[in-house]
Computed example of a mutant assay.
Amino acid sequence: MKKIFLLSAIIFLFVQCKAQSNIVALTNCNKEYDHSTGDYYLKDTTNEMDKYEGVWKWTNGNKEFTLTLIKQVKHHFNQYGNDNYFEDRLVGYYQYKENGLLIADTSSDDLSKDYGVKVQFTLDCHSQISSIAFRDYKKYKKFEVILESLSPTQIKMNMYETEHVIMINKKTGTKIPPNDPQGGSTFPMEMILTKQ
């Protein structure tokens, strides 16, 4: 019995050490990893993402934009294809109001999904918080978004239009998104948000 316990402990320690040897910094511009083995963890080694966690708000007259960001540590990407790796990421949702009326709200998103989340950020290799996904679903558009920490209580959010891809589902013939992208954005493309 002691031999089985000792062998189990050795195997456990070996697996733990092996997993620790494949930590790759998100800020490593030359990162190469096999995203299908489950052995790699793309980590926020500097804890830069921690500055952005929380609820952030912008107001201007009767307009209000609230962005909620949550840091997911060691999120396991394994829902599609050959994906089987871990990564730190920021996910969340936004709400936009005018005259107290809710215009846009992504708070019902399932933030545990690997893909399809409307608000998702990573720490890129230039130590910048940039969007993997930021969708303005009211305008059927996706934006590139850069977040910049101005102070512990303020961040700047800049949105840049990207190319819009429309796909047709071969089985159903439906268009994704269902409508063509519309001009502009639902909310301002540049905002300074204050931590709540």
Rank of each mutant, 00 (worst) to 15 (best):
S107M: 07
I11K: 02
K195S: 11
C17E: 14
S149D: 06
T172V: 12
S131Y: 12
H126W: 06
L147N: 04
N30K: 07
K63R: 13
N84P: 01
T27S: 10
L7W: 08
N22E: 07
Y80G: 06
Y41P: 06
Q79L: 09
H164V: 02
K2N: 13
Q196L: 15
K170H: 11
G183S: 15
L123M: 04
N60W: 04
Q79H: 08
L111V: 05
D34R: 04
N179I: 00
Y160I: 15
W56P: 01
Y93A: 06
I10P: 00
S21W: 12
A9Y: 08
I132N: 10
Q20S: 12
I132R: 11
D109Q: 08
T68F: 04
N28P: 00
Y93F: 14
V73N: 15
Y115E: 14
K118T: 14
K3M: 12
I176Q: 11
E98T: 09
A133W: 02
K171Q: 12
M49C: 03
Y41C: 10
L101S: 15
N22R: 04
F77S: 00
Y140M: 14
N47Y: 07
K170R: 13
T59N: 08
S8E: 06
V73I: 15
K97L: 06
P152W: 04
G38W: 05
G61M: 01
K142I: 11
N82R: 09
D105S: 02
L111I: 12
E48S: 14
L90R: 05
T186P: 07
T153D: 13
S151P: 09
R89V: 07
D105G: 01
N62R: 13
L111Y: 12
S151A: 05
A25G: 01
N99D: 14
E87P: 00
G173S: 06
K97N: 08
I176T: 14
L7H: 06
Q20M: 11
H164T: 03
V55R: 13
L123E: 03
T194F: 12
E87R: 11
E32F: 07
N82I: 06
S130H: 10
L150G: 03
F187Q: 02
K171H: 02
K97I: 01
N22T: 08
I176K: 03
I70A: 04
K71G: 04
I10V: 15
A133P: 01
V145E: 06
Q16I: 15
